[in-house]
């Protein structure tokens, strides 16, 4: 599904070039659950942003679903975001002025789904994550774990093929973190491709495959035996 070849990402300052990513070669197949680990500043988030089409590499090739996705027009990129890729964030990034229900509904509105269909789709997810009772609350009224559940619900409502999670458990204590990781595992079992950046060794183990980044390079790439 994802094919990265010789991806570099660097910043030029006056006297030197600082590499964030260097010569990354990575292939991710459909249905994989990939954990990306590494210390701060190793380029994990940048890699995720490049995969998520939010940042572009300085050089290299990127094929997504067989198509080159470098230098896309806004319209095409927006299309990928509407239908193919979705995100979960460490800080949840729910919109404060919107209720749980409305937050989950947002992507569908941009996708142009009819109001009637939206209703049943959101209801299904609320039901699935057991947050029906919370649907009219605002994000600030929820616990961190609940907020992240809403974040996941929002991410998957448009049925994306690829889910990118940037430290989704970073702000949560371990029980809540486990619940989130279980949810992601379940989604992966249903066939969703997931790439997940984390610091946490234990949570990394939920992935079927783990890569470790150091100074912009992939140091190790291991498949976990199941």
């Amino acid at each position: 599904m994802i094919q990265l070849t010789n991806i570099d990402k660097y910043y030029d300052s006056k006297f030197q070039r600082t590499y964030v990513l260097k010569d990354i070669i990575l292939e991710v197949k459909e249905g994989e659950f990939l954990s990306v680990m590494g210390p701060s500043g190793s380029g994990k988030s940048t890699l995720l942003n490049i995969i998520g089409l939010m940042d572009s590499p300085s050089s290299g090739k990127y094929l997504l679903d067989g198509n080159s996705v470098l230098d896309l027009k806004e319209k095409v990129r927006v299309d990928y975001h509407r239908n193919f890729i979705s995100f979960i964030f460490q800080a949840y990034h729910l919109i404060e002025e919107m209720t749980v229900y409305e937050n989950i509904e947002t992507p569908l509105i941009y996708k142009g789904v009819k109001s009637h269909d939206r209703e049943s789709m959101v209801a299904d997810l609320l039901d699935r994550f057991n947050i029906v009772a919370k649907k009219d609350l605002f994000p600030q009224q929820l616990s961190g774990g609940q907020q992240q559940l809403v974040g996941i619900a929002r991410a998957i409502i448009s049925k994306p093929k690829l889910l990118l999670a940037d430290e989704p458990t970073g702000n949560l204590h371990s029980t809540q973190g486990e619940m989130i990781m279980e949810t992601l595992k379940e989604l992966n079992n249903e066939g969703m491709t997931i790439i997940h950046v984390t610091h946490n060794e234990k949570f990394a183990q939920y992935g079927k495959r783990i890569i470790r980044l150091e100074d912009g390079n992939i140091r190790s790439d291991t498949n976990r035996k199941t």
Partner: peptide, 14 residues
Amino acid sequence: IMEVGIKKVFGAQR
């Protein structure tokens, strides 16, 4: 700014 970012990430056009 966060609101704008989120909306863009989830497929809002400019």
